[in-house]
């Protein structure tokens, strides 16, 4: 099968619920299965989708604004030899520093460093009130094997419209 250089695989705009996440995941699984990809790549993309969507579901700030921007925007696309997961949502301004610190930390590590961080973190992990173990960003980085990109789209009072972009090379790499 010849793949196009750019192709949108999955998009979603709106608020998230557990059931909506399930629908997005099932739909994405079906679409990834139609592509000529190794199983390990499909599962890495699936892992990244799960962690991105669950993080967003747990930490999204729901705001209303006059422009009626969608609360959560997800795009999964294929571009230039990568599968790209992009998620935009609103986060509390006061939490922004902690989020970007976590991403900067994982971005500073190679795969071996990420594995060490994961082992140290899972041993002392505690499940938060929101049901997270604090391992999601590490898992995203380990499955991406590339740097995680993020940007602030705009500020809206105490909320920040935040975008996370994760790339996965279509060809599996055992180390990088």
């Amino acid at each position: 099968m010849t793949q196009k250089s750019q192709e949108i695989i999955q998009t979603y705009n709106g608020n998230l619920t557990f059931d909506i996440i399930e629908e997005i995941l099932q739909s994405s699984k079906g679409k990834l299965d139609q592509m000529d990809l190794e199983l390990v790549i499909k599962k890495r993309v699936y892992t990244i989708l799960v962690e991105c969507l669950e993080n967003t579901y747990k930490h999204n700030v729901y705001i209303t604004n006059k422009h009626k921007h969608s609360q959560v925007e997800l795009v999964l696309e294929q571009k230039n030899g990568n599968l790209i997961v992009s998620v935009s949502n609103y986060v509390n301004k006061e939490n922004l520093g902690a989020i970007t610190q976590k991403i900067d930390k994982v971005n500073s590590l190679d795969l071996s460093g990420l594995n060490q961080l994961y082992r140290a973190s899972i041993s002392k992990a505690r499940i938060s009130e929101k049901g997270g173990a604090g391992l999601g960003i590490i898992e995203i980085a380990r499955n991406s094997r590339q740097k995680i990109n993020y940007k602030i789209i705009r500020e809206n009072g105490s909320a920040i419209h935040f975008n996370l972009q994760v790339n996965i090379a279509i060809k599996a790499q055992s180390n990088c």
Partner: peptide, 12 residues
């Protein structure tokens, strides 16, 4: 087949 990061903590 798959487990997410919070399940991993409980599996441990």
């Amino acid at each position: 087949d798959y487990f997410n990061s919070s399940s991993a903590k409980f599996i441990l």
